[in-house]
Design a protein around this nucleic acid. Sequence first.
DNA 1: GATTTTCTGTACCGTACGGTACGGTTCGGT
DNA 2: ACCGAACCGTACCGTACGGTACAGAAAATC
Lengths: 209, 209
Amino acid sequence: MSTEPEQPDFTDRQRAVLDKALELLVEGGEKALTTAAIARAAGCSKESLYKWFGDRDGLLAAIVTRQASKVIPGADPAANMSEDGLRAALEEFARNLLETISGDVSLALNRLAIGQASKSETGLGAILEKSGRARIGRQTTALLEKGCTLGYLHCEDPQEAYSTLYGLVVRDQHIRMLLGGTAQASAKDLELAAQTAVKQFIQLYGARN
Amino acid sequence: MSTEPEQPDFTDRQRAVLDKALELLVEGGEKALTTAAIARAAGCSKESLYKWFGDRDGLLAAIVTRQASKVIPGADPAANMSEDGLRAALEEFARNLLETISGDVSLALNRLAIGQASKSETGLGAILEKSGRARIGRQTTALLEKGCTLGYLHCEDPQEAYSTLYGLVVRDQHIRMLLGGTAQASAKDLELAAQTAVKQFIQLYGARN
DNA sequence: GATTTTCTGTACCGTACGGTACGGTTCGGT
DNA sequence: ACCGAACCGTACCGTACGGTACAGAAAATC
């Protein structure tokens, strides 16, 4: 974990292949993600797949890693922000989080990683976990710290506070969607859920109290 | 969904077979759950498996259904309870919930259902969902309503309140464990997490405010 | 333009698994 | 004692998939 031995950089061609494979995964689950199907869909040969990614597990890892590298940096926490600015930033975080986890791609990747979790130490879960945290967790934790130092929030442990915020936002929606139950509600409900979660979070960690 | 066409009651023998199969699933993931392996472990023939459960999907559904039928009723919400009694009940719920979702069996079943979610409308997810709600959700919602009518809680929608409580208790622990990252922390931490969650919940929904 | 590398397409191999068939055995009913 | 149902163990079949081999095309290098 110290030296980053792998070079997660691929050729343009290889990236295109991985994107095609992800497409297949999204619309057919892991069962549909056979090497033959990928080769056919991506217009390459199976031999090239094995040459580039080693074996099927390596291919899966490459798909996840590739997607994990697509993290968009997102807005920096403004140097000086108002209390309403903080609230707005938190609500945007909540909206982004809900949108992300309810997206087809996210669901497919999480299902894949969870399916592989019991066997084969390729550590897809770890990759997803890390990229997820990197995508939103880290910078939101920073946002919370900022809110603390500015006196808007009152939290002893930003990690803990972030975890609480996550729980208030996501509730049991993620597992519900992973299980295939409900297609995420409308954008209207999503907005409402985000506002409610942030209101509750501020009620818990707001400076007043 | 109206007439319950299936009879989820099995022979003692069949139940024993399903338990053995569940054992295999827990310690090897879905990959290890082949019909041959089940027959060998349970000391029955493949032909009997197919005779009893139809096909492999039916077998999986039977495993999940069987486990779902093992719900233990749990304590009734006492007719008249003190405010501390309510808090204690909520903490017990939180502890139970955390223990359950971090158990090997729960993780294995959830992984199985999530893996099947993208294909084959056997609806394992729906079964798990329903049994999970039945196990704790429903009666805890009743508990919350009781708390409302007794004036200890102040909530407009018990369902909403339950959902919030769930989020505060579980946070991102469930997805983390499903992804294979962390073995759930010690019983000490679990107790602490439960207390924290309930404290926060009461802070949000307590009558004072 | 010749040579070497990289790629595609297809064919192939071994294996593992879902599902079925069948002979032999146990066991309850009469 | 006989019969039939249920069942075990094993063998078997078809197929699907991971992985490899190979022949020819494309592209790159000189």
